[in-house]
């Protein structure tokens, strides 16, 4: 069974990578085996959201796509981020390691797209993952669209009050092109301003995007620990918890 969650947005700066990092940690702490893939080949950022030093990364998704290795050879075990004695696991596949040469070759789309799909499933199989998150670069780029094409759950992340492309059928039309049932479409309204009524923000956004609102998350500071006012952090954790619950419900099943 495949439990692939694509996380995408139309605009930049909606907090996708941070969201994916937090969700990954949360679900792994609950005992799940979670994989995170940074498919943002143009602007890798997931490793930073996890507090990793980019220079320490030895292998990446691009190495696999360009034929240098298999995808399971690229993962980083993030056991250090887990609470002691935790049964869950968290793995990261970074997008690129060679940031110095990132401008020399546009890697986006320059490989057989089937490698992405096959790679996702292989990762799930080899690492025995319960959930695999695909973090993407904003907009309708090649990797984002293929992540959605592979996904069972598609999380669109937006900011409250944002006026952007609100196509309700985008994900469904991608799925139709490749002959799959469409992923479950969810909406996360992220980085809601302080003292906003989260519920009404959610209702408005859900109507505007015609998607089920999985969570409305208040804005807190970027790092995982330094959160700002207590209630915002609490609100964030509550929202994330809700989202995590939802994902567990929506996912078809857990790996053995």
């Amino acid at each position: 069974m495949s439990n692939i969650v694509a996380v995408h947005s139309w605009r930049g700066g909606t907090g996708k990578s941070t969201l994916v990092a937090r969700l990954g940690c949360l679900l792994a702490a609950r005992g799940l085996r979670v994989g995170l893939v940074d498919a943002s080949l143009q602007a890798p950022g997931l490793h930073e959201a996890l507090g990793l030093d980019g220079t320490q990364l030895r292998s990446c998704l691009w190495d696999y796509l360009s034929g240098a290795c298999e995808i399971e050879d690229t993962h980083v075990d993030l056991a250090a981020l887990m609470p002691a004695g935790c049964a869950g696991r968290l793995y990261l596949v970074p997008a690129r390691t060679d940031v110095e040469v990132i401008t020399l070759s546009s890697a986006s789309g320059q490989y057989d797209a089937g490698l992405l799909h096959e790679g996702f499933h292989r990762l799930i199989q080899v690492l025995r993952l319960d959930l695999l998150f695909i973090d993407t670069y904003s907009g309708a780029n090649h990797e984002a669209m293929h992540a959605i094409a592979s996904a069972d759950i598609d999380i669109l992340v937006t900011r409250a009050g944002s006026a952007e492309n609100r196509s309700a059928t985008f994900a469904a039309s991608i799925a139709a092109k490749v002959g799959r049932t469409p992923p479950e479409p969810l909406l996360v309204v992220n980085m809601a301003p302080p003292d906003t009524d989260l519920d009404s923000v959610g209702v408005l956004a859900g109507a505007a995007y015609q998607r089920t609102v999985a969570a409305v998350l208040p804005r807190v500071h970027d790092s995982l620990d330094d959160g700002g006012p207590e209630r915002h952090v609490a609100g964030l954790h509550a929202g994330l918890g809700q989202l995590a619950d939802r994902l567990l419900l929506a996912a078809p099943g857990r790996a053995g």
């Binding site: 057989d112 797209a113 089937g114 799909h117 499933h121 293929h146 490749v178 002959g179 799959r180």
Partner: peptide
């Protein structure tokens, strides 16, 4: 390997 078995997403389809 593909799980939901759609040939369009196969390696080599492109």
């Amino acid at each position: 390997m593909l799980g939901s078995a759609t040939p369009m997403l196969s390696v080599g389809a492109g």
